[in-house]
């Protein structure tokens, strides 16, 4: 009687262990799906695009023939766009974070701003495009220009920078702030000379990740009118412009197969730029 019971238990344990091992394999396989997809995507893009990726592709403007088309306007446009997004979003974003962490009283109003920022981070990017279209393009009469696109993107990445900067500022130990106050430094002196330098690596890492999001965004820029056919470099904030994702989108939509290869080449350039930015972020995180 007791023996059979033991046998049954043994059997059940074996069954349970077997199930555990089977599902472990299933879980691992599921994890690899995402990784395999990533590998496939990179492989496809590389093999399709590498043939079109050469000096001409980097330095050419858009063209009606796949062999002559290039990403120069998009590359420069993306860089110029970041040139607007970065200062605007960093100043406002870090400023907001300092305000919330160091100056604001912990009252309902502050909580409201905090929840509001959280919600903004969840607003679809295309809705920012609509805001930009109404406010920057029409109300401020910027039209379909670099500045309209840049400011729209700055608002889009703002919540990400605020949250990253808040976390970085919060992690500055209180005792070094006390040391500064203890020597008669004022609040702003303490923030500028102690808090911000100590929080800088965290702020920079978060900022670079936010900016790389801005580099890859397409939808809001379509709405605020980034052009596709640009044959000159923007020479002012009120110039027409294009960016890399818009170029890629445009090429992807064309029926002839060659344009797919051009799009793939464009994607390679875009991914390289993103890779560089992330490498910088990792470098900063490890260095400090």
């Amino acid at each position: 009687m007791l023996d059979t019971n033991q046998n049954n238990i043994q059997k059940r344990i074996r069954g349970r262990v077997l199930l555990n091992n089977v599902l472990k394999v299933l879980f691992f396989t599921s994890t690899t799906v995402g990784l395999i997809f990533l590998a496939l995507l990179l492989y496809r893009v590389l093999t399709q695009g590498i043939g079109y990726l050469n000096g001409n592709f980097i330095s050419n403007f858009p063209a009606p023939y796949p062999e002559e088309a290039g990403i120069f306007a998009g590359l420069i446009g993306s860089i110029m766009l970041i040139g607007i997004v970065a200062p605007v979003a960093i100043v406002i974003g870090v400023g907001t974070a300092i305000f919330l962490e160091e100056y604001a009283y912990k009252n309902r109003w502050t909580k409201f701003i905090q929840v509001n920022i959280q919600n903004l981070a969840g607003v679809p990017s295309i809705v920012y495009g609509l805001l930009g279209l109404t406010f920057f393009v029409y109300m401020l009469r910027f039209g379909y220009t670099l500045i309209a696109g840049g400011l729209t993107m700055a608002l889009l990445v703002l919540p990400v920078i605020v949250v990253a900067a808040q976390e970085a500022i919060r992690s500055v130990p209180a005792d070094i702030k006390e040391a500064s106050y203890g020597m008669g430094a004022s609040k702003w002196q303490t923030i500028r000379r102690v808090v911000l330098p100590a929080a800088l690596p965290g702020i920079l890492t978060g900022t670079i990740l936010a900016l790389s999001r801005a580099i890859g965004e397409t939808a809001p820029l379509i709405i605020v009118g980034a052009a596709t056919a640009i044959y000159t470099i923007p020479d002012s904030l009120l110039s027409k412009y294009t960016v890399m994702p818009i170029q890629i989108f445009n090429w992807t939509g064309r029926p002839q197969e060659e344009w797919q290869f051009v799009a793939a080449a464009g994607i390679i350039v875009l991914l390289i730029v993103l890779l560089l930015m992330n490498a910088i972020a990792v470098f900063i995180r490890n260095k400090f």
């Binding site: 995507l41 580099i215 397409t218 993103l274």
Partner: peptide, 11 residues
């Protein structure tokens, strides 16, 4: 995967 631009996914 989360950092790849959506236009690339679309492609």
């Amino acid at each position: 995967l989360a950092g790849i631009p959506t236009v690339v996914y679309g492609f």
